[in-house]
Design a binder for these strands. Structure first.
Lengths: 230, 230
DNA sequence: CACTTGGTTTGATTTAGGTCAATTTTAGGT
DNA sequence: ACCTAAAATTGACCTAAATCAAACCAAGTG
């Protein structure tokens, strides 16, 4: 299968010439992982970074007691572990496929050479890292300053904005991950998430049918997401 | 006052020629803030970034109820708000001087021009952003997966490693910030921090005399910092 | 040197959210 | 469609940490 179209869609490689894209194709290695495969472990030596072509990958930390905090879920077109190549020599977290996943793997050395020669790619990398950074600032803020209901509401607002259809009842969309994974992304556990969803439902703010969510009162949900006590 | 020596010490500008350093001096603007001054606000348009020459700056978020989470405390030689120039157009947090502070301010446009022309600087920027990223991953991990005692112990271990003197009793050092600020950096409040310090003291793991800390049982402190229940 | 002011400590209490255990629901595999 | 196993929900309970309130301490000022 030809991978260049996938690379062109990737923000990290935007604005590159066709020749440069081809060169990228040359240094990358295609890999496939079944669902649930460990792509790399925390503290493992970082010998390259990844672009997701299809499937999904979760990046996460584990506590000694086994609690999981998902840092991000990577979708097709997105990259991960870029930063590990440039700071320290190990991956800072675990990466696991959430579904059958195809990635392109870029070995550190050849990619670093490429970036040294290519100013546009450097700038793209800077933009990509800056974007990650903003996401993490936001995650820290949420974990430290907001309660579970607020974090959940924010998540639902964001997801509805990107994949919601409006019906007469309200804005409908599907959760794109298991609720237990969502809990782990929001820095909590499934029991607590379940109760938070129920509180929103009981107040008539949302409707929950399995993975299908309908937002009935957008304004109320927004208020809660901003931390106004419910 | 001549600023070039300060710039040379800054990791973001390491490996640059003297001429390039001089050029940097040309585009930067020196600014002074008294203790407690607001350098910028969250959501304010990001028109430039900063290098701390002397003093200290805290970068922080506020919750609607006024609780503060310190993201980082910037010391001389370090930069802040670089990422804001490359992603979105606003600062993602507040910045306030903790003491009388001198900074160099680099206006966005001229700095971005410079970085476009200078590959070494791009690479330095990538390294700097990657480093920030790792710090934030670690902060998220701590907030989400570790209790206050573990976070505190980690902080004490780190600080002792960088500024501790060993005496016969143990490793001695001074807290470099107020305890209330430390609490806010650890994602908690001063009362809780005070109790956590007391627990460590009561177990004979540390000695606390005002800002002076002595680590009496390094191994025990390390264990707690790793999340082994105390 | 007394006085104010801000930081710190301590105690009593509340609460959000985690833990444990039991049930119900959902989803994948044969 | 059935069966098993995993996921989700619910209830009872517990715990870490926040809140509220008061006392305490240290530093700087008139």
């Amino acid at each position: 299968m030809n991978i260049e179209p996938s690379l062109k869609k990737c923000p990290l490689f935007s604005g590159l010439e066709d020749g440069e894209i081809a060169e990228l194709g040359g240094i990358s290695i295609s890999k496939r992982y079944p669902k649930g495969a460990l792509i790399f472990s925390e503290d493992q030596e970082a010998k390259g970074f990844f672009v997701v072509i299809s499937g999904r990958v979760k990046i996460y930390k584990l506590s000694p007691e086994g609690k999981e905090q998902i840092l991000h879920i990577i979708s097709p077109g997105q990259t991960f572990a870029e930063a590990a190549l440039f700071d320290g020599s190990t991956y800072p977290a675990f990466a696991e496929s959430l579904a059958e996943t195809r990635v392109l793997y870029f070995p550190k050395e050849s990619f670093v050479n490429l970036i040294r020669k290519n100013p546009q790619m450097s700038l793209n990398m800077i933009a990509s890292l800056s974007h990650w950074l903003r996401k993490f600032v936001s995650l820290v803020e949420e974990l430290s300053l907001k309660d579970v209901s607020a974090r959940l509401s924010k998540y639902l607002m964001d997801l509805s904005a990107q994949s919601g259809r409006s019906s007469q009842r309200g804005i409908e969309f599907e959760l794109d991950i298991r609720k237990s994974q969502l809990a782990s992304q929001l820095g909590t556990i499934s029991e607590t998430l379940s109760r938070a969803l129920r509180r929103l439902r009981d107040r008539g703010i949302i409707k929950v049918e399995g993975k299908k969510i309908t937002i009935l009162q957008k304004e109320a949900l927004e208020e809660i997401s901003l931390g106004i006590p419910l």
